[in-house]
Amino acid sequence: MSDEEQREAVLMAIDRVATRMQDEKSHLTDLDSAIGDADHGANLARGFTAAAEAVEGSEDDVDEIVKKIGVTLISKVGGASGPLYGGSIMSASQTLSEEGLTAETSIAFAEAYLEKVLDRGGARVGSKTMVDALTPAVHTYKKSIEVDELPPVTALAKAVAAAERGVAFTVPIRAEKGRASFLGWRSVGHQDPGATSTLFIMQELLATAEKFTEGETDVDALAPSEPDVDPDDDGGDE
């Protein structure tokens, strides 16, 4: 993508995420009122809307735009989501500073974002947090490009499918981090709001990528691009 297209893609992505968060505000708040402090929908809607406004019409390079999105989220999103979403975006924006947005730098961005979330929040897979959606998504994205050599948009579609499974995984497990952990066993049976909003963000990134790049997007995260050896096949000829 040209510099101009990259800028257009990033601005479209933040607009789409902001609109989605407004649309999902009460849904996320309902999820958060079951196991948290009922502010996730309002916080993210306010933050992403402010971020979209802050960069509207920007002529900056994409790393500067992404950094500004992070900084705006930090100042506009309350609670732990400010540092976790905004701080991680701000920090990961450095991966785009030299070459802009490419398949390689998008992997680096995703990995840097995940690493910052893990460092800052101290959660791991199975803590019933955004990490449960983010980790399989980032791993699937990287593997799909680097090993399977799929186009980035196809890799992103697989990552979204992986994140969907991660969100479902948060339902039957007990919370170990954040407000939900105070509920102990009562947190079981509820879907994590942070994992859910992470999936929504990724779905909007995919919808944006589909407009700018080409590739199959009707894919399953669990389907290998080159099928593994059939475990029932004993390798014999008969």
């Binding site: 930090i74 609670g79 732990a80 400010g82 540092p83 976790l84 800052r120 929040g121």
Partner: peptide, 14 residues
């Protein structure tokens, strides 16, 4: 509590 630690860490970086 909680987010106070994360926001303090981020504030130190900034």
């Amino acid at each position: 509590l909680g987010s106070a630690v994360m926001n303090a860490e981020l504030a130190i970086e900034m």
